[in-house]
């Protein structure tokens, strides 16, 4: 039996690396006494996988994980037992049994982000909406992406326009951050990091964005099969 869950990663816990997160869940399965299936072998570990890992420093409202169970358990009970031992900023908010055998990482194709831009210059801050429109109407936006080729790191030129689903202006928060949302390709068959989008935006439009101050939150992730876009859970 496989349980798929949606969980959060908020506050300071956005600074946990993917490996730290895997260790946290490994310990939490054991502490919570949920009947998780363990791998065979000398060094048994619980069988679970987290869909497209989040970069360090990005918060998330919706991360996804599949957990293989050794015996039947009601998803709700699983959620309650786990949340008792998980930290308050990493909590399971939804759990359900899934039938399909396809892994999360193979089905997740899109990530939806909320991006907080810091623009010091008031005039430029007012121009951001137009700059966004200008940016999203470009036919081609080339950026240099770091790739690993064997052991060497190389730079390749990539057009990111096909990797962008949409970019929307949302407004300003009380601290003066400009909020935008962006739906970006995510996963093995094409990936655009939100900071790469912001860097390209600043490159092409000269909007006065302080890249270091950018704050990012993942709102959700989406699967896509045959043109249908849907939440994995």
């Amino acid at each position: 039996m496989i349980i798929r869950v949606r969980f959060t990663k908020l506050g300071y816990l956005k600074y946990l690396s993917h490996l730290d997160l895997v260790r946290l869940f490994t310990r939490s399965f054991s502490r919570s006494n949920v009947p998780v299936k363990y791998s065979e072998g000398f060094n048994p570990h619980p069988r679970f996988s987290i869909g497209n890992p989040l970069s360090l420093g990005i918060e998330s409202q919706s991360e996804y994980m599949d957990v293989e169970m050794s015996e039947e358990i009601a998803p709700n009970e699983f959620m309650i037992m786990m949340n008792r031992v998980l930290p308050k900023d990493i909590q399971i908010i939804h759990a359900d049994i899934i039938d399909d055998k396809e892994s999360l990482s193979s089905i997740i194709k899109w990530s939806h982000y909320e991006i907080y831009l810091w623009i010091e210059d008031t005039k430029k801050r007012q121009e951001i909406k137009e700059n966004l429109d200008r940016f999203t109407s470009l036919d081609q936006v080339m950026i240099k992406k770091k790739k690993k080729k064997g052991k060497r790191k190389i730079h390749v030129d990539v057009d990111i326009v096909p990797l962008i689903g949409n970019v929307t202006f949302k407004g300003e928060d009380q601290d003066g951050y400009v909020i935008i949302t962006a739906l970006l390709r995510s996963g093995e068959s094409g990936n655009l990091k939100p900071i790469e989008l912001v860097t390209a935006l600043e490159d092409k439009t000269n909007s006065g964005i302080n890249l270091e101050m950018t704050r990012i939150k993942r709102l959700d992730a989406f699967a896509e099969t045959e043109g249908n876009i849907y939440r994995p859970l």
Partner: peptide, 20 residues
């Protein structure tokens, strides 16, 4: 603190919040 933690290696060294 937030903008600093984005720049350093292993920021989890400085956040606390551990179990217990």
């Amino acid at each position: 603190l937030d903008s600093i933690l984005m720049k350093v290696e292993k920021p989890a060294r400085y956040i606390g919040m551990e179990q217990n």
